[in-house]
């Protein structure tokens, strides 16, 4: 019988621990497929964050490193500078990247470190049980914002992609979503572009992926995808914020 579909070689055979309906699984696969298509699986070193995706090191079929909370860009900086010919990526959530690790990501981008960051934004702290994150929307309820995030008290959510796009050495910054097939395909294109530009030595590259958390949002997977579109996308608009002129 002819093989019509195979799981990407960029992933190990270990089953994901993610809750059903969580989009980490989709995003893992997109990254892994891109690595495979670019022939990079055995030339890649990934850095896992702290958060629900802490076990990412068990799922990607390449060398992997665990970093302290928020410090993945610092670890990736070291790895990439020692192995400039290898593909290096960090995989970080919004609690990890946009809160405790804000300094690391901003300065890695400022220095133009030549690695790729996959930034998964689901507007909440998932692993610790649904606390307010810097990306939590105004009015969105969280365990530490039982009445919803209040603008006067907690400010407005941080738009990481827009912020990083102001940094000259952040050469590729794009926000994508994985709520339907069309957007999943677009997300893959962006991730592929980011890795290509990294390998061409252009500078720092980041893809922000809007994601869900059915468990802590208290919604079914389908409701969650709808909530993402209706609530997250207006505040976190999809699109490319930076691409090198010659790559356009």
């Amino acid at each position: 019988m002819a093989v019509v579909f195979e799981k990407t070689k960029g992933l190990t055979d270990k089953p994901f621990h993610y809750c059903p309906g969580c989009t980490h699984g989709i995003i893992h696969r997109l990254v892994a497929e891109v690595l495979e298509e670019l022939g990079l699986v055995d030339k890649t070193i990934g850095v896992a964050p702290v958060g629900c995706s802490v076990f990412a090191y068990d799922y990607f079929n390449c060398d992997m490193h665990e970093a302290s909370h928020g410090r993945a860009p610092a670890v990736a900086t070291g790895i990439k500078r020692v192995h400039p010919d290898k593909a290096v990526f960090t995989y970080q959530g919004d609690g990890d990247l946009a809160s405790i690790g804000t300094a690391e990501i901003v300065h890695a981008a400022m220095r133009g470190e030549k690695f790729t960051t996959i930034f998964v934004n689901n507007a909440i702290y998932g692993m610790t049980g649904g606390q307010m994150a810097p990306t939590t929307l105004v009015g969105q309820k969280a365990t530490t914002a039982p009445l919803g995030r209040m603008e006067d008290h907690a400010g407005m959510p941080l738009r990481v992609s827009e912020m990083l796009a102001t940094i000259p050495k952040a050469v590729f910054v794009e926000r994508v979503s994985v709520h339907d097939v069309k957007h999943i395909n677009q997300a893959k294109k962006a991730i592929k572009k980011a890795f290509q530009l990294q390998m061409e030595g252009k500078g720092f590259t980041l893809v922000e992926v809007l994601s869900t958390c059915p468990t802590n949002w208290g919604k079914t997977p389908v409701e969650s995808l709808k909530w993402l579109q209706e609530n997250m996308m207006p505040y976190f608009p999809l699109g490319n914020f930076r691409t090198p002129e010659e790559a356009k």
Binding site: H17, Y18, C19, C52, V54, F55, G129
Partner: peptide, 18 residues
């Protein structure tokens, strides 16, 4: 949980719940 090991406190709900 889908993670074995009692000390784990990741909210990883198992698909088995369905």
């Amino acid at each position: 949980s889908s993670i074995k090991g009692l000390a784990g406190d990741l909210p990883a709900l198992s698909p088995e719940i369905n």
